[in-house]
Design a protein around this nucleic acid. Sequence first.
DNA 1: GAAATTAATATGTCCGCACATATTCACCGC
DNA 2: GCGGTGAATATGTGCGGACATATTAATTTC
Lengths: 237, 237
Amino acid sequence: MAEGRFSWREARAEILRRIRTGIWPPGSQIPYEEALAEEFGCGRGLVNRALQELAAEGVVERRRKGGTRVTDHPVRRPKLEIPILRQEVEARGGVYGHLLLARVLEPAPLEIRGRLKLSAAAELLHLRTLHLADGAPYAHERRWISPAGAPGVLEADFTKISANEWLLRHAPYDFGEMSIGAETADPEAAAILGASPGAPLLSVERTTWRKGEGEEPAPITFARQLHPPGHRLKAEL
Amino acid sequence: MAEGRFSWREARAEILRRIRTGIWPPGSQIPYEEALAEEFGCGRGLVNRALQELAAEGVVERRRKGGTRVTDHPVRRPKLEIPILRQEVEARGGVYGHLLLARVLEPAPLEIRGRLKLSAAAELLHLRTLHLADGAPYAHERRWISPAGAPGVLEADFTKISANEWLLRHAPYDFGEMSIGAETADPEAAAILGASPGAPLLSVERTTWRKGEGEEPAPITFARQLHPPGHRLKAEL
DNA sequence: GAAATTAATATGTCCGCACATATTCACCGC
DNA sequence: GCGGTGAATATGTGCGGACATATTAATTTC
């Protein structure tokens, strides 16, 4: 051992190493911040910072009085690289474009009400959009937007700006979830995407909410994007 | 304004709010740490911490001398919730199990050499595993492991411990990448997973490397997991 | 013995200061 | 002009101390 002056990054790396090599196995408790600080030859603040980062990543769990222990499955959670379509396209050097295929105000279908956790039936703005990369189909999107969660959405012109980007600017979300799966192309989606019916499509669903002032969260939007065959999402581990 | 004593979380939230509501539009420069600290009524350390987190999330970019500016696409990158199969199954209250279907030592196929960025042809351990949840097929995995990157792998008994968990303990990775897509079930995969041929399967590929001491990174493993129809990955936004 | 109170303790947060480091910008000599 | 040099400056990192907060353990009280 005999370390000399760890930086907080080095401290984090060393702690992670000890966890991954089994020196501190899953479920075990690890030394207190002060003890580690002394061993690493640095202040408690640095160890605290290192441990807090690892806790945020899900590698360790911390509780006041009771110390820090290794998670049952100490693995860092992968981060998806590009969550926004336009960015995704432009990162590949393509030209992004979008076509508004349909726009209707309609009562929320039962499935969508469930996704948005809407208690009462309400009118939602339903959009169908085709996203393009260099003019070629990139994703077919069906989106439902709650006018209550996104004030002004009924006046927006989604032929000019994509719903995604409009919402980003005018109805920022506080939290949300994303779900990824594989689906079969129905005839309509296949035609729009230029795929053969029955082809496997990557399906990406996003739901977002806004956490009001003290009230309970208000749903903003639910969107399902279908990508043509061959499309892959990337994440770093 | 007239704020009173921000915590660093509040500072981060306030900065994020200003970015998302367009007060600080994409590409623009935001005030210096000291100015913000004064406005928020807290020390520079807290503002620094808030901004560093936002920088890590990709919302802002920071450079010494030259300040902090909002990213072109200030969006937080989603984090996948459950990256490990056993954890995934057990989180749903299921019982995890696995079956080793095949184990051969063979020269690296060309495609796999590409994934692992292997320059020369080398013998890799090729495994085929069926992962089970409550006895039902949960994922079909094909994995290639480099004995050079994972010493001792040839002696491991993968009927007892899954390759995933063995690698986690004995050949920890430093970095890696993950790729998600949709594929059609070939007859073999369909039979193993109990799906009909041609059904859409979610495909999850992982590649990991270890960054040696000064040398260049050594590939550890490449794995492709195919999930039965209906399976979805979840992430939080 | 059970319940309530109190003490002990590990982490969470914060400040003020100091110095390191990278980058930019103005200045200078030619 | 032009290239090089050095000062200015914003962020990066770190210390040591202080107090807050949550949780556990010990102690007292009924």
